[in-house]
Computed example of a mutant assay.
Amino acid sequence: MDFKGSQQIGAPREKVWQRLNDPLTLQQCLPGCEHYQQAADGSYDAVIVAAIGPVKARFKGSARFSDLREDLGYRIEGNGSGGIAGFGKLTADVHLEDRDGGTALSYAATAQLGGKLAQVGSRLVGSVANKFLADFFARFEKLVSQSEDIASP
């Protein structure tokens, strides 16, 4: 399953980059996120509660950021398991560029699902994923555009 899109964010690219690399910002912006913390190996452990149609579960997983290009973008590789609900794997490339007095964030992602999640159908999963992304970007835009700069990670 592939996803791609872009979002205009009303903040300078440096500030968007800074916030995209801040664990507290990401925890606040990820819908259903109960836990998001850096692990000893540099990856991030997360717990997210999500419902996809009749399947609702607490997903425990991790994300690793690679190919970091400061103020330009990175690659995210993540996985999560919701027990009996199934599992998911994600690879996403994120790119930032200056545009219209703010920052254009574009992404291209590929997701793989297994278990009950794979049985509910790609159309339903796709619509839930698009809502998740819309909620994330709405929260991110609000937080980034209204807040002060944070200390560099």
Rank of each mutant, 00 (worst) to 15 (best):
K4T: 13
Q38F: 08
K56A: 14
F137D: 00
G101K: 10
D2I: 14
N21Y: 03
K89E: 12
S122I: 13
K89N: 10
S127F: 09
R123D: 00
L24V: 15
F3T: 09
L20Q: 10
L113Y: 13
A11Y: 11
C33S: 09
G5Q: 06
L96N: 09
N79M: 13
G42R: 02
A63R: 08
P12M: 04
A134F: 09
Q7T: 12
K131C: 04
Y107H: 05
S145G: 02
I48M: 10
K89W: 00
H95L: 03
E14W: 11
E97W: 12
Q112P: 02
P23E: 09
G42K: 05
D100Y: 03
L26V: 14
F140M: 00
S66M: 13
Q8F: 01
A57V: 12
Y44N: 05
Y36Q: 10
Y44E: 07
G73A: 07
W17E: 06
D100F: 00
L124Q: 05
H35A: 13
V16W: 04
D41K: 07
T25M: 04
R139A: 02
V49E: 10
D45N: 06
F3Y: 13
F65N: 07
L30C: 08
G121M: 10
P153K: 09
Y107R: 00
F87D: 07
G86V: 11
E70F: 13
T25L: 02
C29A: 08
A51K: 11
K60S: 04
S43V: 09
R123P: 00
D2M: 12
A111R: 06
G115P: 09
S152N: 00
P54L: 15
S147K: 00
Q119F: 00
Y107N: 00
L30D: 08
S147N: 02
